[in-house]
Design a binder for these strands. Structure first.
Lengths: 333, 333
DNA sequence: CTGTTAGCGCATTCAA
DNA sequence: TTGAATGCGCTAACAG
C-alpha cells in the first residue's frame, strides 16, 4: 500500500503538499497539484482513513445504534440514514443493541471509541439518566424514537400517543364498543404511549376500558397469534382488535383466519407502523403511519447540520402519525 | 479523554507497561498490573481504538457490504453476522451497495480504507474479474450469494438452480402443466439460476416451456403485482405461478385476490426464500428455504477462522435449499 | 505557494 | 519485569 510519503517522493514535493491536495486546500499551484495527482494515480494511492482520523480527530463516520438489524422497522430507517449521510460523503457504522442494557452500553462505547464524529441512537433499555450523562460527552448524539425532556432538542420522535388515539378512535367511530388491545411490551415507552392513546380515545367516547381484553405482546408476529388465541379463549365478546404494531396485527389476523373467522366481517383490526408487507396481504391492513424513514433522515440531517455544518435545513423533532384506512375494519350496523 | 500517557503517569510506570497490561501480556508483575488497573479505573480510561488500529494494523472490525439495509433478506443475514462476530469481540461496519457497480466499488474501498481486518461482501453489480483481483489484496474477503470458480473457497452460496428445480417440480408433481414464471431481474445470477432450475424441471416432466408465460420482475412486491396483471391479461391458460422470491409471490397473490381469484383453488403459487412474513398471510405460502442467516453465520465463521485464527470449525461453502409445502398450491384433479 | 517539524495515541522492538 | 525509543500514516501549525 502506497503511503503519502511515497507519493511525495514520486511527485518531488513535500509530504505537506500532498496532504494539501488531498484536502482540497486551495493554496497549491495548479502545476504541483497536477504532479501530485499524477503520482497518486500512478501509485494507486489510497489515503489511510485510520491515520487521517487519528491526525485530524475526525473520522467522517457516524455511528448508528439500533435495536435490531432486521425487521421492517429498522431497515428503512437505516437505509435513509445511510443514504443521507453517504450523499454528504460521510459513512455509517452500524451496531445492534438488542434491547438489552448491557449490549446497548457496550455498543455505544464501541462507537465512541471508534472515533465516530456523531452518534444516532435508537435505544430502549438504557435509562434516561444514562443518556443525559452521555450528552455531556464531546461526541454529539441524537436519539430516535425517544423523548427526554432535558435533551429534547436532540430527540427525533413520533407522537405515539396520538397514533394510539387515532387507531382506537377510528374503530369507535365505526361503532365498535368492545375493543381488545394487543400491546407491545410495556417496558418500552412507545408501547405505553400507544396504549395511553387508546385509553384516551375510549374516554372520549365514554366507553369503559376492559382490562380483560388486554394482552401484552412482544411486537413480533408470533405474539400477535398468541394474543389472539388468548383473547378468543376468553369467551368474552368483542368486535375489534387494536394491535400496537402491524406485525402483531398480521399474526393475529392469520390466527383468526385459521380458526375460520372472517376479517373484517367477524372482527375488525387496526395495526400500527404502516410497514410495507401488510399492503400485500388480504385483507389489507388498516394502520397508523409511522414515518420512521423520515425520522431516520431527520436524524441524519441533524448530524449534518450540527456536526458537519452542512445542510442548513430546519430540523423537525416531533413527527405526527396519521390514519391509513384500508380493508381490515368495517362499520358496525 | 484520558490517554495511555495519563494512566502511566498516575500509575508511576512507563507507557509501555500500561500497553502491556491492556494487551494481557503476561510479563507484568501482579503488583504493577494492579497499580495500572487502578489508575485506569480512576481515570475512566478507554483506549483509543483508532490509535490502536494505526499502531497495530488491526482494527478488530470486519466490513460487511450488502445490497440493501432493509428487506427480509439482508436483515437476518446481517443479524447473524453481527451476532457471531460480536460474540468473538469483533465489530461490524456495514455499508450498502444498492446493486449498483459504482456504489459497490466505492463501498468496498471505504471498508478497505477504514482498516477492516476482513470483508464480507454480498455484491451483485461488480464483475467476477473485479472480485478476483480484489482477492489479491492483503485484506481477506469472503463472498455471500455468489459463486466464482477461481475463488470458490471464499464463496458461501446457495444452490439456486436446485431450488428453482424443486419449486417447479413440486407443481408438476401436483399435476400442473401450464406454469407461469415471475422471475427476478436477469442481470442477477441467482435469478438466472432459479429460472434455469425451473426449466430443468419442465424438461424432466416433458412439459414445454412457454415463453409467453414468463415475466421479468425486480424481486420486489410491486413487480409481483405487475407481473400477475400482465399474465392475467394474456388470456392464456395456466394453473400455477412460480415466483422467484416470496416478495413477488405476495404481490402476485394479492393482485389475484383483488381480482376475485382464489388461491389455491383457481391458481397455485410457489415462492422462494422462506421469508418470515408470508407465514402469517392467507394462504400460507409454499416456498423454498433459503438459509440466508446460516450463510451469514458461515461467512462470519470463515472470517473468525481464517483471519482471527479462532473458531476451529469446518466451513461449508455450498448450501442446499429445501421445499416448504404449505397452503398456496393444490393438486390438480 | 511550499517545506519542516511536531504530534495524534498506541504497539513494539531493544536494552537494561 | 520494566523503560526508552521508534514509528504507524497523516494533519496542522509555523516558517520561509
Amino acid at each position: 500500500m502506497a503511503t503519502i510519503y511515497d507519493v511525495s517522493v514520486l511527485a518531488g514535493v513535500s509530504l505537506a503538499t500532498v496532504s494539501r491536495v488531498m484536502n482540497k486546500n486551495t493554496n497549491v499551484s495548479e502545476k504541483t497539484r497536477k504532479k501530485v495527482l499524477d503520482a497518486m494515480a500512478q501509485l494507486d494511492y489510497r489515503p489511510n482513513a485510520i491515520a487521517q482520523s487519528l491526525a485530524s480527530n475526525c473520522s467522517n463516520s457516524v455511528g448508528v445504534l439500533v435495536s435490531q438489524l432486521d425487521g421492517p422497522f429498522y431497515g428503512p430507517m437505516m437505509t435513509e440514514i445511510e443514504a443521507s449521510l453517504r450523499a454528504a460523503g460521510k459513512h455509517v457504522i452500524i451496531a445492534a443493541g438488542h434491547s438489552n442494557e448491557a449490549q446497548e452500553k457496550e455498543a455505544v462505547e464501541f462507537l465512541l471509541d471508534r472515533g465516530c464524529d456523531a452518534l444516532i441512537l435508537d435505544v430502549e433499555a438504557v435509562s434516561d439518566d444514562y443518556l443525559i450523562a452521555l450528552c455531556r460527552q464531546h461526541t454529539p448524539i441524537v436519539f430516535i424514537n425517544r423523548y427526554i425532556a432535558e435533551i429534547r432538542e436532540r430527540c427525533v420522535y413520533l407522537d405515539n400517543e396520538l397514533g394510539g388515539y387515532l387507531a382506537t378512535r377510528h374503530l369507535l367511530s365505526l361503532g365498535h364498543r368492545h375493543i381488545a388491545y394487543i400491546s407491545g411490551p410495556l417496558f418500552k415507552l412507545d408501547a405505553r404511549q400507544r396504549l395511553s392513546g387508546h385509553k384516551k380515545a375510549l374516554v372520549e367516547f365514554a366507553v369503559a376500558y376492559e382490562s380483560e381484553l388486554f394482552y401484552e405482546g412482544t411486537f413480533k408476529e408470533s405474539s400477535g397469534s398468541d394474543g389472539m388465541r388468548h383473547l378468543l379463549s376468553l369467551q368474552r365478546p368483542f368486535t375489534a382488535v387494536v394491535c400496537a404494531n402491524d406485525q402483531m396485527a398480521s399474526g393475529a389476523i392469520a390466527t383468526c383466519l385459521e380458526q375460520g373467522l372472517r376479517v373484517p366481517e367477524d372482527l375488525s383490526f387496526m395495526g400500527y407502523d404502516n410497514i410495507p408487507f401488510p399492503q400485500y396481504i388480504s385483507p389489507k391492513l388498516n394502520t397508523i403511519s409511522n414515518p420512521i424513514h423520515e425520522m431516520g433522515k431527520m436524524a441524519a440531517l441533524w448530524v449534518l447540520k450540527h456536526v458537519y455544518n452542512k445542510a442548513d435545513v430546519e430540523v423537525t423533532n416531533r413527527f405526527t402519525p396519521s390514519l391509513f384506512i384500508r380493508d381490515s375494519a368495517r362499520r358496525l350496523p
